[in-house]
Design a binder for these strands. Structure first.
Length: 260
DNA sequence: ATGGCGCGTCAAACGCGA
């Protein structure tokens, strides 16, 4: 089973590319981030026509996440627990069925946090602490669980072409990296790292300054696997080719293959 | 060396992203 995550940067602006990618790579389940759409504006019909069930957690103008799955979505939950006053749509979760077991998938759009030293950075750190608490409750179930999305964290220097250029950025702050490490240290496996330990694998290239042409990228989209999911890990990768398309997202899909 | 974009909102710039 192939499970993918993609920050689409506006689902309505990107619908043709999304449909092409779904047809070409045929993922079993997908989490989309930054759909920038309310629920009613999400182009569900075109995606359902390809055989997917759709669950949306949208918001006007910004943010927004969605799940797509061929085998259906059960027990859909919207929003990250831990703060009833948080109105930003950044988390959605559901259960999907594999051939011989079920998998819970959580899709997230973690706050960017720039500029540092502001309320935006504080919000990022608070959100990460809530994510850690939620991951702990999910890991206690000892079931296959994939926690994926745009984490907006560059975990280590090898995850950037020019690591020093990001040292003042919220994506590479010691607090951001420390909380990401705290999350993985709960027992989650970074699937892309596990399959490509040498680095140089990026998921984001800025629209500006010819970043993609220079391969001036960073790896900030991650798929973290519970031990029960990691046991089933076959391979993981990046669909870099989508970044060369017309009107691309600035992120590319990342995916895992699990024998479930 | 430097700077170089794009989406949604809303109908001109602006907020936001990374």
């Amino acid at each position: 089973m192939r499970i993918a995550t993609w920050n689409i940067n506006g689902v309505k602006a990107r619908i043709e590319g999304l449909l092409t990618w779904l047809r070409e790579t045929s993922p079993d389940a997908v989490c989309l981030q930054e759909i920038k759409s309310v629920d009613e504006g999400f182009p569900a019909a075109e995606i359902e026509a390809l055989g997917y069930s759709v669950a949306v957690h949208g918001q006007k103008g910004f943010n927004g996440v969605a799940l797509l799955a061929k085998a259906g979505l059960e027990d859909v939950q919207r929003g990250l627990p831990g703060d009833v006053d948080d109105v930003q749509s950044r988390y959605i979760e559901a259960i999907i069925r594999g051939n011989h077991s079920v998998v819970r998938i959580g899709g997230l759009y973690l706050p960017n946090g720039n500029p540092i030293g502001t309320e935006k950075f504080d919000y990022k750190l608070r959100w990460m602490r809530r994510l850690i608490a939620h991951a702990q409750t999910r890991l206690a179930h000892e079931e296959p669980f994939v926690l994926m999305g745009d984490y907006n964290v560059i975990p280590e220097a090898l995850d950037a072409k020019r690591p020093n250029a990001w040292l003042g950025d919220a994506l590479a702050q010691p607090e951001s990296r420390g909380l990401y490490a705290e999350l993985t240290h709960l027992g989650l496996t970074d699937a892309i790292r596990a399959c490509h330990p040498g680095g140089g694998v990026y998921t984001f290239w800025d629209y500006q300054a010819g970043s993609f042409q220079k391969d001036d990228g960073i790896r900030i989209d991650h798929l973290l696997l519970s031990p029960q999911a990691a046991d089933k890990l076959q391979t993981a990768g990046i669909d870099r080719f989508t970044r060369a398309w017309e009107k691309p997202s600035d992120h590319v899909p990342a995916w895992v293959e699990l024998d479930v």
